[in-house]
Structure formats: C-alpha cells, structure tokens
Nucleic acid binder design. Structure first.
Lengths: 189, 189
DNA sequence: GCTATAAGTGAGCGATCAATCACTTTAGGC
DNA sequence: GCCTAAAGTGATTGATCGCTCACTTATAGC
C-alpha cells in the first residue's frame, strides 16, 4: 500500500488557493491537478467528485475555525474579554491566511446549508458566548442570533473590504477599533 | 422596428431571480430564456455575452441603490438621523426584494472590481456621510473606510443570516436594534 | 402596401470540463 | 523476492453550455 495522505494535502492546498483566487466554478479539475502537481485522475482517488471536494474542504475548515475560537475563549470568563480574544484571533488568522478566509467567504453560498445544527462553528461559538452573557445579565435581552450576526458583521465586513482592496493595511491595525465597535454593538462600554 | 424594451426587462428580471436562487455559474442562458419565456438567441440581441449581462445588471442595480440612499439622506442633517434613515430604507428594500439583495451579495465577487472610484454606491454614500460627521466633530477620528465597513457589516450580516434561514423574521423587526447597534459602532449614544 | 430595419427564433456548432478506466507504479506483509 | 492492494496516471468520453447564424416576424416611415 502507498500512503496518499501527502497527496491529499497537496490537493486540498491547491484547491483552496485556486478557489479563493478564481472562484469554485471557474477552477477546473485540471487547474487543481496542475497546482498540486499530480494527475487529474488522482483527485478521484481521494474525492468522489469536485462537489465533494468543495464540501469536504468547506466543512472541515469551517469546523476547524469554530474549534479554534472555542478553545481560545475557554480560559476567559468575562464577555468583553471573550469578544476581544475572538477578534484578536480572527485578525491573526486573516493576516496569515487570506485564501482560507476568502474561500470560506465565497463558498458559504450553497455550502452553509450542509452545516448541521449541532456542528461547532465560528457563528455558534459567538452566539453561545453572547447567550451566556445575557443569562448573566451582562448584555441586554435581544435575539442572540441577531446580536451574533451584528458582531460578526463588524469583524467580517472590513475583511471583505480588505479582500477587495478597499482597505489596504494589515488587519492587526484594526484590532483595537474592531473590539471597540463590537463592544458598542453589544452595549458594553 | 420593434420595441425590445419589454423583452429586455423580462430578461433582466428572470436573470436576477435565477442568479439569486442558483448562482451565476449554475444558471445557463437556456434557464434565463426559459424564465423570460423567450428564445435563447434573443438574449444576444440585448447583450453581447452572459458576462456582459451579469456586469450590466450588477452595475445598474448597485448604482441604483446608491442613488436611492443618497436621495434619502439629502433632507437629513444629523448623522444619527442619516444612519437611521439609511437603515430604514435598507430594511424595506430587503423585505420587498430579497432576490435583489442576494444577487448583489453573491456577484460582488468579481464584479466589485469593475466599479469605478467616481461611481455613487451604497458604500460611498455611507462613507461620505461618516466623513462629513467626522469633519463636524460628531464622530471620532478613525479611517472612514473602516467605520463604513463596520456599520455596513452590522446591517448586512444579519441580512445574510436571513437569506440562509438562520434569522426568520421580517427584517423590519430588526430596524430599531440595527440602528442602536450602528450608533454603538460609531460611538454615538 | 412596400420597404427597411431591428427583434425574435431555435437548431446546431465548437469548446470545455468533470469523470472514467485500463494501465503502471509503489510499498507493506509474508 | 513475490504478491496484493491501494495510489497514481492521462488519454478518452459523454454531456453541457455559451454563442452563432440563417431564417422569420413585426413595425415605423414613406
């Protein structure tokens, strides 16, 4: 038997970069094979179809980010600190791996529906943190999904602008402003 | 000569709905022709290519929304009122025409680069309003593009959640919360 | 009514691309 | 050193899809 795990990682890496740069529909299986320096047929030793590759990539990366966030806030008790830590992690992640963010951003359409309710995701981690803070009386009573969406928007939309070249600085530079704004959304001073 | 303007509108309407529902790449020119109840070849009497149709649709709708916003805040003087009026308009627009929002959302990738700097867009209107308020000392000094992005995120991200079924209520119901949060982002009480 | 011109039609073409499959290569177990 | 099973190959295929083109239909101006 041969070990295909290295090849699988090469496929995932090449696919991620190409999907982020050109979009999923515009990236052919030939492109992916070329980027990974393997034959086109090899892709199909690891994935049943291009669709399965896209879905597998999305779900594993999306869950991975959720797990990372959950691990980071486990040590923090106050909601303000949890928000700050999550935003800080996002800033680092985005600066260090823009293709990852871009891929998740533009494949959410059509993939988000395959996310089960029980799955740990960046969104679920944020919402649960907000829910706990509401139960503790630290945040006003309002739909926690709505609050989570608004906080997420504050952090993600500038990243979208950054991807499209409207904002040019390192994302770290925005860290303090983002935290301030996220607190403002939740009514924390 | 025959008048093709009705047919053109039917093409635009069918394309908008299909693009929003299935995505651009997944929508064929046959689909569009079927949706508009015309022959496939007729599309090419009005647009040179499918790409041109997508770009023309995006640019005209994006500009249209910018013009609408600009007209609405012209009467308002204070930044708080301007923000409130813009959010109110967005809520109405979204509830009444979700395909429009969905289309703009998922075609921004790849189309946003064809937007010239001089063009009036929802983003430019928001940024200019924030800039003026900064000049008047009503909002703290910070990158106006960043502030605009954060405010936009507060309003748009819940709409994204709504499109994907995570938030189910009418968007009007969120109006007050959205305004409160947007003010919070800008440090207005 | 005749003509010119643009709009509308849909079968068909050429290109593209995901997926297959017969074949080759590699390596762990014996 | 041989066997086996999985990994890797790449030419091929069948289907899809954007776009064309020869033709028909409608209408405004005369």
């Amino acid at each position: 038997m041969r070990d295909g795990s290295v090849t699988r990682k090469k496929i995932n890496q090449a696919a991620l970069e190409l999907f982020a740069r050109k979009g999923v529909a515009e990236t052919t299986t030939r492109d992916i094979a070329g980027g990974a320096s393997i034959a086109e047929g090899t892709i199909y030793r690891h994935y049943k179809s291009k669709d399965e590759l896209v879905q597998s990539l999305f779900l594993s990366l999306y869950r991975e980010q959720g797990d990372l966030l959950a691990a980071r806030i486990r040590n923090e008790t106050g909601i303000k600190e949890q928000i700050a830590v999550m935003i800080n992690l996002f800033c680092h992640l985005f600066d260090e791996n823009r293709p990852l963010f871009t891929f998740l951003l533009l494949t959410q359409h059509g993939q988000l529906e395959s996310v089960s309710d029980e799955m740990v995701t960046p969104v679920s981690v944020l919402r649960e943190a907000i829910s706990r803070a509401q139960a503790a009386g630290q945040i006003r009573q309002a739909d926690p999904d709505l609050l989570a969406a608004m906080v997420l928007g504050v952090v993600v939309q500038p990243a979208v602008f950054s991807v499209y070249g409207r904002l040019k600085q390192s994302y770290q530079d925005f860290n303090a402003e983002l935290v301030q704004a996220a607190w403002g959304v939740l009514g924390l001073t």
